[in-house]
Design a protein around this nucleic acid. Structure first.
Lengths: 227, 227
DNA sequence: CAATTATTGTCGGCTACCTGACAATTGTTT
DNA sequence: AAACAATTGTCAGGTAGCCGACAATAATTG
């Protein structure tokens, strides 16, 4: 059972506290999705929000040539998703896909808004959450503009490691079984480039492969790729 | 006097309504900044938010080699700024610089939060605002990943035109007097590339220069650059 | 368990775009 | 008006990373 990096829960505005989760659970329905399932799609009406209980979800758009572009980051257990579009407008602009087997609490927009007006400190929490995501998105833009591909890949690995990595002897294991194609979509490059760079990182012993999982051995070395 | 595209005010979540602005004005102080002035800087304590009354502001970060990277879009009159960082954490992560002469209403965090709890529908407005910005940032990421430089420049011109362009006979004039360097920072490319592309656009009569201002003559042609 | 599909590894050519360098023009200061 | 600074225009390398193609594994399916 992957135990979350505990210091990230307290004070992390992205993750709901146990009480907050409880409030959401009370007005929602729990649902399971198998790996690979699409949870919502672009152009659908955004009439519900989700709380992730178990598993990971990727938020992506489709480019004109059909490639998946991960515009948000990966959403972890304890996070909400589908928030921005539900709070704001009518329609989804992106897709949400289950990276692993996922358990979600689904809450209808109407019920969610009612909760927000009653527990009105929650409205502030939502604002904080969106603010934190904003910052993340801005950081992403910054990286895309300033770093080249090796740096972006190194950064991605480090970020994923921090977010949902499992500390082990001699490194941090990333249990998400991302394909190189998925990784490429997250940092704006091609599959081939990801393959070759990961092998470069492996050769210099920054990372190691365990089956299809990646283990970060030397974060320092990865950092040095970030130009 | 640049009159805002009226249909963008109603229903545009980025721009405050007249009543909302009035509420903000009542608890804030009006200040003027000359063109070029830095309004806030990275690492400062984020203890205030701003309402833009007149002029335009760019939100940017500095890359390690000193280039300005515009991570948010340009902020227009009627918009708030400095919101995300004030709502969320302690410190600014980016800079705000006056593109033109600017008039702002400055509101202290404490007072702003008090307003939010009293006029609690305003908290929802803030959430909506941040949600809209999120979407914008995600669109930016998508563009950076999927479009090449000519497409990104075309898109930028079209977006600026829509946001703060002034419809004229035979086109839309962009009154912001952006330098090619500034434009480069907004789409992640170099100054030289911007210069040469703008001239390409001029040659095909998609745009025209009026002094240092740009006028969009043929949006269709610009769209066709977006691969 | 074989058969099929998905994922990874590798390589050569190609091109979009960056880098640096310098001249021409425009804007600003004294 | 002269002097200076900032912005724009242009051009010749150089290169990071894309594209296509194919082989080698690994994972799924019937």
């Amino acid at each position: 059972m992957p135990e979350q990096n505990q210091d990230l829960v307290e004070g992390n505005p992205l993750i709901l506290s146990e009480q907050e989760k409880e409030l959401v659970r009370r007005i929602g329905t729990t649902v399971n999705y198998p790996k690979g399932q699409i949870i919502f799609a672009a152009d659908e009406v955004a009439d519900r929000v989700y709380l992730i209980e178990k598993g990971w979800v990727k938020i992506y758009r489709l480019s004109s040539d059909g490639r998946e572009v991960t515009v948000g980051s990966i959403r972890n257990p304890g996070e909400m998703m589908g928030l921005a579009e539900t709070v704001y407008h009518g329609k989804r602009t992106c897709f949400a896909g289950a990276i692993s087997r996922v358990t979600l609490v689904v809450v209808l927009k109407k019920d969610f808004f009612e909760l927000l007006t009653h527990e009105h400190y929650l409205a502030l929490k939502v604002a904080k959450l969106l603010a934190a995501r904003m910052r993340e998105a801005e950081a992403m833009v910054h990286e895309l503009v300033c770093c080249q591909v090796p740096g972006r890949l190194a950064l991605l690995l480090l970020k994923i490691g921090e977010r949902c990595g499992i500390p082990e002897d001699e490194g941090v294991k990333i249990e998400l079984r991302l394909t190189h194609e998925e990784i490429a979509g997250m940092i704006g490059t091609t599959r081939q480039t990801v393959t070759s760079l990961l092998n470069t990182f492996k050769r210099e012993k920054s990372i190691e492969f365990q089956g299809r999982e990646i283990k970060i051995l030397d974060p320092e070395k990865l950092v040095s790729w970030i130009v």
